[in-house]
Design a binder for these strands. Structure first.
Length: 220
DNA sequence: ACCCAGGTGTTTC
DNA sequence: GAAACACATGGG
């Protein structure tokens, strides 16, 4: 069975460093993490560009602007009404509870994570993205790509979904270095690999994990 | 005319 | 708890 760390090494050689999270500030990472929920990154880029153009890419601005104006700007990324609401709540509650993002990130990981999970619109994946990529905390983001890959490689029996988030996260992190840079790169590479070779409809030809002579998938 | 995308919350059994 | 549904734009 291919270990998660071995997969990382192969992915890294094959796809190279992914440069996640692409952003000019930690605030931009948090905004992007919310905007990209079930949405292609391409659409998110448009929304972020619109925010940047208006000078709204800061907690302070997000607190002050009207929600209707925010909707207009982020429309291209879809689900824009609820995402505008999520962004407002996030910005306002950070401002009230911590004043700055750094103050949140200085809290212990578990405490910061629980606080994030209590914001409407921030679930486990979004919380972990914020903590890992913006807060530089050593935690692994689990997304549907990773759950699919893990099922196909036999890391867990069959196709797990988000209900097994904690179990998948523990299993993988137990087999990876507790390092924010490595864990962030692992997740980015998993996404790159899934897009290239692990789609919903299985088509494993030329998959680098197969070329390396590993047995996979277990469903065969 | 479908299916997919760097999910989350609510409702309903 | 677990399904089923709502949320919405844009590309293949």
């Amino acid at each position: 069975m291919l270990s998660p760390l071995k997969a990382y090494e192969i992915w890294f050689r094959c796809y190279g460093p992914q440069g996640w999270w692409p952003a000019d500030s930690t605030e931009e990472i948090c905004v992007g993490a919310i905007l990209t929920q079930n949405t292609s990154w391409r659409n998110v880029e448009e929304a972020i560009a619109a925010l940047k153009k208006r000078g709204w890419l800061s907690l302070k601005a997000l607190c002050e602007i009207r929600e209707e104006e925010l909707c207009e700007a982020i429309r291209p990324c879809g689900f824009y009404r609820q995402k505008a609401r999520y962004l407002k709540e996030f910005a306002i509650s950070i401002e009230r509870g911590f004043k700055t993002l750094d103050a949140l990130f200085e809290k212990p990981l578990k405490e910061a994570r629980n606080w994030l999970l209590n914001r409407t619109g921030i679930g486990e994946e979004t919380a972990d993205s914020i903590l890992c990529y913006a807060g530089r905390h050593p935690i692994l983001v689990i997304d549907n790509y990773t759950l699919r890959i893990g099922g196909r490689l036999g890391w867990w029996p069959g196709e797990w979904d988000k209900r097994q988030y904690a179990a998948a996260q523990r299993l993988l992190m137990d087999n990876l270095p507790k390092d924010a840079t490595i864990l962030g790169e692992w997740h980015a590479l998993a996404v790159a690999h899934a897009k290239a070779h692990c789609k919903k409809k299985p088509s494993c030809g030329s998959c680098p994990l197969l070329i390396k002579g590993q047995t996979h998938p277990p469903s065969d």
